[in-house]
Design a binder for these strands. Structure first.
Lengths: 200, 200
DNA sequence: CGCTGCATGTAACTCGTTACATGATTAA
DNA sequence: TTAATCATGTAACGAGTTACATGCAGCG
């Protein structure tokens, strides 16, 4: 079983969905930490079906094919529960912005400053988006059941918790970009002055 | 040109290296945010050579083949400088721990608590390692040139800056894991009490 | 005498991305 | 009428992983 398979079981843990629904879920909010292409999803759903972890009922869809609504089987729910508590396999980190920073000495400081400011802004926009989603989750059904999404018994607590991480880690990243932008300004200034103070 | 190609140019930006040297660099410290398998590196070096971005001199190696020491050409240095200031292509995020958190409602709270505590410890160990590297970089040649690695003119400033990000963002992650572990404890307690307080 | 480190490469495979293909309904 | 949304699938390619293969030098 691939991680993608488990990711699909994860999207189905709160109720049945069509493949198309899953494609959309792979964007917001789950898409911020796990993504899959639509071309990966349909074959993987077929594999999960063959393994007996999901099942579907089909009705007439809008196009030439049937629409299938998938749900977890008992076996699927068990497989998911077992996987959730296992330590995650270490993944190779790929962070282009940090890679570029490693080789920063090879770049023009003024242009690099522009790079960092642009990145800071992009992350700020994403942070604003997360904050809006966070507030939205907390306000929704705030009174109907006497529980909010920050209560671990709330069915949306998992989604809420993922937003909490983003809200805690994005500001650190933005501050890092701004710090680097400042350092680039310093570099431009320092380059026009004698490199080393004369030794006495 | 693939990102891997630029990653190799990045490792060469401070001086010539053999393929084997690059394999090792792809672990510490650069390996914390960009990794490549040894089987990827050798063919990519050949491609970069063919494109004229690097060149090498060969001498008798220990094994049956020649040892090649690669360096950036002027064209390679220019290509690197141009790439560094370009906005990074958006990458699909894959974070298994966060994915698992999304589907947390399907897990056993007590076992999930163990998962979060184990993750917190693993990240704490990596943070300690980063802190040691950070201190090491700052103490090295602290007097010889009157500059430390936190001076943007220092050749190691790039490597230093990448560690700064880790030092700023890992604590947020560890705190998040600990917060979730606590929530899992709460869940265990709350489950044994009436689900909803009686409405008056 | 076997293990680790140095050093370079290839082969087979899996995972992920881009692009193609079909077709109904609804909104601009 | 043109585009977007719903809905499901396949094909070709590229990137990344695991495993294989060779062979010298030095250490315990």
């Amino acid at each position: 079983m691939s991680t993608l398979g488990y990711a699909l079981l994860c999207t189905l843990h709160r109720g049945p969905l069509t493949g198309y629904d899953i494609v959309r879920r792979m964007r917001k909010p789950i898409g911020y930490y796990w993504t899959a292409q639509q071309s990966q999803i349909y074959p993987e759903l077929a594999r999960l079906s063959a393994a007996g972890l999901i099942e579907h009922e089909a009705d007439a869809g809008p196009g030439p094919r049937q629409r299938k609504t998938h749900r977890l089987t008992d076996a699927g729910r068990e497989a998911l529960a077992a996987w959730l508590v296992e330590p995650p396999a270490p993944r190779a980190p790929r962070d282009e912005a940090v890679l570029k920073t490693y080789a920063l000495a090879a770049a023009d400081p003024e242009r690099m400053r522009g790079f960092y400011l642009a990145e800071a802004e992009a992350y700020q926009r994403r942070l604003d988006d997360f904050r809006a989603q966070h507030a939205d989750l907390l306000s929704r059904d705030a009174d109907n059941p006497p529980r909010r999404a920050d209560d671990p018994r709330h069915p949306q607590f998992g989604a809420y918790a993922t937003l909490e991480l983003a809200l805690a880690s994005f500001p650190a990243r933005i501050a890092w970009y701004r710090w680097l932008a400042e350092k680039m300004t310093d570099l431009g200034r320092l380059r026009n002055t004698p490199t080393d103070p004369p030794t006495p």
